[in-house]
């Protein structure tokens, strides 16, 4: 029993964080928003870091890592508000294809020449797929309505929901950070607004929500990785906890920014809109709530102090 990432895992996540912080700041989001949303150079950078092949087995030219590493990096993608379809391709589609023994496309995915957006019936549309374009509130999300019906596979849904939850954690962290930084520099009544308890306490409440959503997501990643029969419950729990933390943080963050927060000029909106989009993707709040409800009240999940890791 050890509820801790290894030093290697943490170093990996940190290197992705540093890379994205250095190459994918808010100015890049603005440029993408103005110039068509996708940039092959950004994608190539992710490929060069090995991220497209993170979960691809070594035989197909990947790094052969698992869902824990993928979830950690998905959180970093959320933190950077990454628009390229790395998470859907490399952390949702790849593990799903691997689980089905479908290896044909993996080498191309690892090499970065193939992007995959898998449709699931719960998602009425996908990002970065082929089909009739739709407009998302998230300006950097390239939505399409796909022609065929989607998969009904639960494992695919669980992967998508888990990785959405992980991104929501990173989004929430980033929004909290932006709000805190703004509260330190905006002065009113002769002091930084961040000195007012009315704001401090709201921000602290966000910190509590985000902090306690994190281990739920990591626990879900481990359960799904292990193929535990309770994994769907834990994934739904993770999606709920991360969604609630992110939406709460988004609302507080805009409030802390005042009217600036209501403008298109402040960075916050990119993160907030991504959070709205992911909150409803791969099973919305009601869907995941019902799965938890059914397991906990329906009696299929053993509950109580001795069942922490059931």
């Amino acid at each position: 029993m050890n509820f801790r990432f290894s030093d290697d895992q943490l170093t990996l996540a940190e290197s992705v964080r540093d890379y994205l912080a250095g190459t994918h700041g808010p100015e890049v989001l603005r440029r993408l928003d103005a110039e068509g949303n996708r940039d092959p150079a950004i994608w190539q950078g992710l490929v060069d870091m090995g991220l497209t092949g993170l979960c691809v087995p070594e035989e197909q030219g990947g790094l052969g890592m698992g869902l824990l590493e993928a979830a950690l990096i998905a959180a970093e993608c959320g933190r950077a508000c990454l628009a390229e379809p790395l998470v859907d391709t490399a952390f949702v589609a790849v593990p799903w294809l691997v689980s089905k023994g479908e290896t044909a496309e993996l080498a191309a995915i690892a090499a970065g020449t193939r992007k995959v957006a898998l449709p699931h019936v719960l998602n009425p549309w996908v990002a970065d797929g082929e089909g009739k374009p739709l407009q998302s509130v998230d300006p950097l999300r390239n939505l399409v309505r796909f022609p065929a019906t989607g998969s009904t596979d639960d494992h695919l849904l669980n992967l998508g929901a888990l990785m959405s939850a992980a991104q929501l954690l990173g989004l929430a962290d980033a929004m909290l950070n932006q709000a805190v930084e703004y509260a330190k520099i905006r002065t009113q009544f002769g002091q930084p607004v961040g000195a007012f308890q009315g704001l401090k306490h709201q921000l602290s409440s966000c910190a509590v929500a985000v902090e306690f959503a994190k281990p739920v997501v990591w626990r879900a990643a481990q359960a799904l990785q292990d193929g535990a029969s309770s994994a769907p419950l834990h994934v739904s729990h993770a999606k709920l906890a991360a969604t609630d933390a992110a939406i709460q943080t988004a609302e507080v963050a805009i409030q802390v920014h005042g009217a600036m927060g209501y403008t298109y000029e402040v960075d916050l909106h990119f993160w907030m809109k991504r959070a709205w989009a992911l909150a409803g993707a791969w099973g919305d709040r009601s869907y995941h709530y019902k799965r938890v409800d059914a397991a906990v009240l329906g009696g299929s999940q053993p509950i109580g102090p001795e069942h922490t890791f059931a």
């Binding site: 509260a183 330190k184 961040g194 000195a195 704001l199 401090k200 921000l203 602290s204």
Partner: peptide, 18 residues
């Protein structure tokens, strides 16, 4: 506790700072 989180974890200015 919320003051402590705000000031020590988030790094917001202390009460009365100005």
């Amino acid at each position: 506790q919320r003051n402590i989180i705000a000031e020590r974890l988030l790094g917001l200015p202390r009460v009365g700072a100005g």
